[in-house]
Write a protein that binds this DNA or RNA. Structure first.
Lengths: 247, 247
DNA sequence: CGGGAAGAATTGGTCTTACCATAATGAAGT
DNA sequence: ACTTCATTATGGTAAGACCAATTCTTCCCG
């Protein structure tokens, strides 16, 4: 007898698999992350809130979060919440950190790559930015100004400024990538226990650069945005070179 | 009062590692599976039985099973139970690949990023390439031509061509980065079991593009190299868009 | 006025219980 | 002997409660 009859034609009719609620929840969460609604480092809503807003039970949400954590997309900490991880980290950062350790040449190379990537970002941001994104960029600029009056612009604010511009490109992959490059450089700076731009003069220059970039993005002038960011980062790269030689 | 007396002395001397119960359960299950207690195709005890025998709640067992399922070790079917799968087949996918796998939009985003990065690379290569690097690029171009006569340019050759140009930038970090991006995209193509550029006409167009890029790099004409690579990758991105819509 | 410390609110981790949906099992009827 | 259908076992989901760790707020002290 044909014993594998029930096997041979089974794949013709039943390729379907009932999708669990937790998988649907995981799918929705993946979508909003890939759409850039939640970016690297963002905390997504609490389990209870997600459960309520999606109309499912908390265990289902928990299982979904667990799936995403197992895929390396999230990290959840007890009492803290669930944080979106950098999707390119495993791909780029971990293999790179080995080389980066204390090689200023490598830091310079990363900075060079960052430079032209952010130039592209500024151009794209000028083309695609929304009013909401513009407001966030402006808010960071104002915070930067307050920092400047106190004497020193915090690196986190500078980082957020560039990160916000990256977000305005509406290319989620790029956002994760640029975040990774930022982290690589900042990590290196910490290792060397150095700060590059300490002079008051440098601080003011950097602020002026940022202001120029912001205005261009505000006016949707992509060429000017590209030029402004290009000038800014050429300055940064030059300072970096001087710093690398000085040590 | 010592409210947690009945619990505290049971694990007083164990290391205070914030490992979740579900992870401990998952670890035990992985052990008995790897020890051969349960072999491929075997059905594990029911969730309720596991919970009782391990002295934990059923949700904890469920989360553990879910973790193992996400790692490809188990497969659980509703009403059926949890079955041990073949351990040798599992492959680790990076978080980015998880996204790329089921989202053509993401593939497009990566391709967009690749596009402007390679444009920069062509420009830099025209400025900094050595004679040796030029020879290697030329050799790949000739191999590509032989492929074209046979009907189809191999993806590996195309990949090597771009990779060699990246190397000519003399930015080691950039080489690694662009290599990763290539791998991400090629993986996604495999997943979708599609090939984008199959038409003879496309093949010839691509070859002409590459030839133009090569000549510009050979002549150390950075502006032309940038323009040529830009035109090429705009073409690729457009084809990708069409492909993404068609599926 | 600033800064640290204590307390309150938030949030993830676990347990318990209950009910539903589906697959596996077996008994009854033809 | 085969089919049919009820029973049972098992996974899937929901709800509520409590604990533990974190984060935020507030208040008090210097």
């Amino acid at each position: 007898m044909s014993q594998k009859n029930h096997e041979s034609h089974s794949h013709l009719f039943l390729p379907i698999r009932p999708e669990r609620v937790s998988e649907k929840v995981a799918g929705q969460l993946k979508k909003v992350i890939s759409d850039g609604v939640f970016r690297v480092g963002d905390r997504l809503p609490s389990e209870r809130e997600l459960a309520e807003r999606m109309g499912v039970s908390r265990p289902s949400v928990r299982e979904a979060l667990q799936q995403l954590e197992m895929q390396g997309i999230l990290e959840t900490v007890r009492g803290g919440g669930s944080i979106v991880k950098n999707l390119t980290e495993q791909q780029i950062r971990s293999p790179m950190e080995v080389f980066l350790g204390d090689d200023p040449q490598m830091v310079l190379e990363v900075t060079e790559v960052r430079a032209f990537m952010e130039t592209w970002a500024a151009k794209q941001a000028a083309l695609h930015r929304t009013e909401d994104e513009l407001k966030r960029i402006q808010a960071l600029l104002e915070e930067m100004e307050r920092d400047l009056e106190k004497g020193r612009i915090r690196y986190e604010i500078d980082f957020k400024f560039h990160s916000e511009i990256a977000a305005a490109t509406h290319n989620t992959f790029f956002v994760h990538l640029i975040d990774n490059l930022h982290q690589l450089v900042s990590y290196s700076i910490k290792v060397h226990r150095e700060q590059v731009f300490t002079a008051r003069q440098d601080q003011e220059t950097i602020f002026r650069h940022h202001l120029r970039v912001f205005k261009a993005i505000k006016d949707r002038n992509s060429a000017e945005a590209e030029a402004a960011m290009g000038d800014h980062l050429r300055f940064v790269v030059e300072e970096f070179k001087r710093w690398a030689q000085a040590r």
